[in-house]
Design a protein around this nucleic acid. Structure first.
Lengths: 222, 222
DNA sequence: TTGTATGCGTTATCAG
DNA sequence: CTGATAACGCATACAA
């Protein structure tokens, strides 16, 4: 049996509540008792059980994130940065990958909700109605990332894929270019790509649209 | 307040234990009551609280994995595969990245243990004594991956980096090659790389050793 | 087969 | 400032 708060309390001759207060850095504890408790914690090698804490405090210290693929650089870097900052604050990341499928995203959201995360990170602003319903019903904070939207679930962090593409084509066109091509990964469409394509088509000039067969095998022929 | 087992039990006019048994697919429940309970579960939109379950059952359904970096393809692919299979079985992955630092690995192991995972996945077989102590004391199943070792903590899945390198050099040498070069990432040494270098040095010939300044910027000059 | 009661380790409430 | 004590939501041993 692992050492728990009660053991620390007994050794320190204090109540369990006091140990808990020391653990959570409450201000309402005298320096002497705090020191005594901390000594006992070290002596017993006490290690808090965050599962129990999560149940009691109704706060797990976990944030769930869903990205298309773990190995996809763009998202991996975001996850790494997120994870770093969160970890410094005692929060862990729960990562799921949906492979550009919003149905799979819905499944992951369903499963993740059972673990009672404190917040959600979603990629893109394109979800199934049920996904949106579930998350809104949960009342959890949400960040949708990678694309802007007019009606976010909660908050969005992203850029305007449509406007970016439009400006690119506009620039090229204003410089006299007339034959342009798009090389992209069209295997699994998503809202970010859709917006970019919309931006391109605004001034299509002589547009050649090709795509990579997969993210690794490129096939181009004009 | 979210709907819990007690609510389902009340609606179905059964005991909480029965609902729990239905949830966990116990064989000891009559088809009629099972069906009735499942109907009530759907009607109420009941969603189990895995935090509470984890505390009661002493099993969280989470496995923690530590890799050097999330975006590093080799490990990302393993995480993705792991995650897929585990997810099918209701288990979630808790990923941490240590950036090739075994001290950071130790810190992550310490933090992860508080979340009571059911198992550990570690990259490499090179850890701090404290890391090994902590994990052994936890009694959790462990897989060390990417490199073989003679005294694993628990079990190992990997290949012999030393022997692989040795055989490569041997082959080249036997074909008459005498000037060879190693291009590698020497920023953060680890046991896998150490083993490979050992294998190269066995038959060094005229060995030129260079390295990439970082994983993205390559600098080679012979 | 089913219901009841107890425990899991913490936090939080409420008196002292 | 501190100590009991009641939740938290579920699993499980024990009875029925």
């Amino acid at each position: 049996m692992r050492v728990k708060i009660a053991d620390v309390a007994r050794l320190a001759k204090v109540g369990a509540g006091t140990v808990s207060r020391v653990l959570n850095g409450s201000r309402n504890v005298s320096p002497e008792t705090r020191e005594k408790v901390e000594a006992c914690i070290r002596e017993l090698g006490y290690m808090p059980n965050l599962v129990a804490r999560g149940l009691a405090a109704n706060r797990t210290g976990m944030i769930s994130a869903i990205i298309p693929a773990i190995g996809y650089t763009q998202h991996a870097e975001v996850m790494q940065g997120l994870s770093d900052v969160l970890h410094e604050n005692g929060i862990q990341l729960m990562i799921g990958h949906c492979g550009y499928s919003i149905e799979r995203e819905e499944q992951i959201v369903t499963d993740f909700l059972e673990r009672r995360p404190d917040a959600f990170y979603l990629t893109g602003a394109w979800h199934t109605p049920q996904t949106r319903r579930l998350i809104e019903a949960s009342g959890l904070p949400v960040v949708e990332c990678s694309n802007l939207t007019d009606n976010p679930i909660d908050s969005v962090v992203g850029y305007d894929n449509y406007e970016g593409a439009r400006q690119m084509v506009h620039l090229l066109h204003s410089r006299g270019h007339r034959r342009m091509a798009i090389v992209t990964n069209a295997v699994d469409p998503n809202d970010r790509m859709a917006d970019r394509l919309k931006g391109f088509w605004l001034r299509r000039a002589n547009l050649v649209w090709t795509w990579t067969a997969s993210s690794s095998a490129t096939r181009i022929a004009f």
